[in-house]
């Protein structure tokens, strides 16, 4: 490139460098964290422990990916974990009679519920925070009603999903392989599809996207529908590992999904980020959790740590250079 040494080229080099640094920090922190835990407990880096880690991480990987789509367009989905809980209940109810169809119906139902969030937000112009806060209560209630407020064990239709728990793909539990596969697929599609930048454009400059002919309302519905689909996938993985569905099974995962997305380097204000950063973010959150138990921290402190991590990660990554107004 002829202009490489000119002044603008230097600017670009710096921008790129900074961009790379920002996206490399979470990965670097992850490595440090793994080494720190391993120094206390060397068996942590062993195959058995890694398998357990990945298996435990699978639901969070899927939920955080869903959360990422919504955060990327500048919204937030507070209902994603509750929707996964509802998903486990639906799956446990339908699986014995419907088998594979039950799985598809569960995915369809959660996707539809997500799309509904998006539609209300897009067409009735209600902020996503409000819509999904309401939806959180709504779907939680539906899950409690459908399940009779109790855990439903899965005894029949067992084979349809339990391969997720028992099968190993290249040494990796199938559930984790599926979750990582979905994340990679999302990353590839967002990079190669013609409209793949629409989510980023929405998050950065919705009016500009609109005035360039982007169907912004549809993109919004799509982002929430994808979040719903991810919640459904997470429900299947969770139900497989727990042999059951329960109305609050995934509820505690809401805070970790947001923590994972933001520590991975997706901007809470939208427009910047992606699936791979979310993958790193989830691993960070999971290793943090394991690290805490290795250090002997009481598990009841977990939520406290997630809360602090979210605020700290956002505080560290928000671009304050522009003196923007925060609401």
């Amino acid at each position: 490139m002829s202009s490489f040494f000119s002044v603008p080229a230097l600017t670009r080099g710096r921008d790129r460098l900074r961009g790379r640094l920002v996206s490399a920090v979470p990965a670097a922190v992850l490595v440090v964290l793994v080494l720190a835990v391993a120094s206390r407990q060397p068996s942590f880096v062993g195959a058995a422990s890694m398998r357990a880690l990945l298996e435990g991480a699978a639901p969070l990987l899927l939920l955080a990916l869903g959360q990422m789509f919504v955060i990327l367009i500048g919204g937030i989905d507070l209902s994603v974990a509750v929707l996964a809980s509802l998903g486990t209940v639906l799956l446990a109810t339908w699986l014995p009679s419907a088998g594979v169809l039950g799985v598809l119906a569960t995915l369809g139902a959660t996707t539809l519920a997500g799309a509904l969030n998006g539609a209300v937000s897009a067409y009735a112009q209600v902020p996503s925070f409000v819509v999904t806060l309401g939806a959180m209560g709504l779907w939680s209630g539906v899950a409690l009603t459908v399940s009779g407020a109790s855990t439903i064990s899965i005894t029949e239709g067992y084979d349809t999903i339990f391969w997720l728990r028992d099968l190993r793909i290249g040494g990796v539990p199938a559930s984790a392989a599926v979750a990582i596969g979905v994340i990679l697929l999302a990353a590839v599609l967002m990079r190669t599809l013609s409209g793949g930048r629409a989510l980023h454009a929405m998050g950065l400059a919705e009016r500009a996207a609109l005035m360039s002919g982007t169907r912004t309302q549809r993109v919004r519905v799509l982002a929430f529908a994808l979040s719903g689909l991810c919640a459904g996938l997470a429900a299947v993985v969770l139900a497989a590992s727990q042999f059951s569905g329960a109305p609050t099974l995934a509820d505690s995962l809401l805070l970790p999904t947001i923590a994972a997305v933001v520590v991975g380097g997706t901007a809470i204000t939208g427009g910047v980020g992606g699936p791979l950063r979310t993958l790193v973010g989830v691993l960070l959150v999971v290793v943090l959790r394991i690290g805490m138990s290795v250090m002997g921290v009481d598990p009841s402190y977990e939520q406290i740590v997630y809360g602090v991590v979210i605020i700290a990660a956002v505080a560290l990554t928000v671009d304050r250079g522009l003196l923007r107004i925060v609401k």
Partner: peptide
């Protein structure tokens, strides 16, 4: 606010309205 999408690259902005000349199928 409406003409260009601030934060998006020059290339992405140029292709924001019609990316069909740079695409094959989807």
């Amino acid at each position: 606010f409406e003409g260009v999408a601030m934060g998006l690259s020059v290339g992405d902005n140029i292709l924001l309205a019609d990316s069909s000349p740079a695409s094959a199928g989807p």
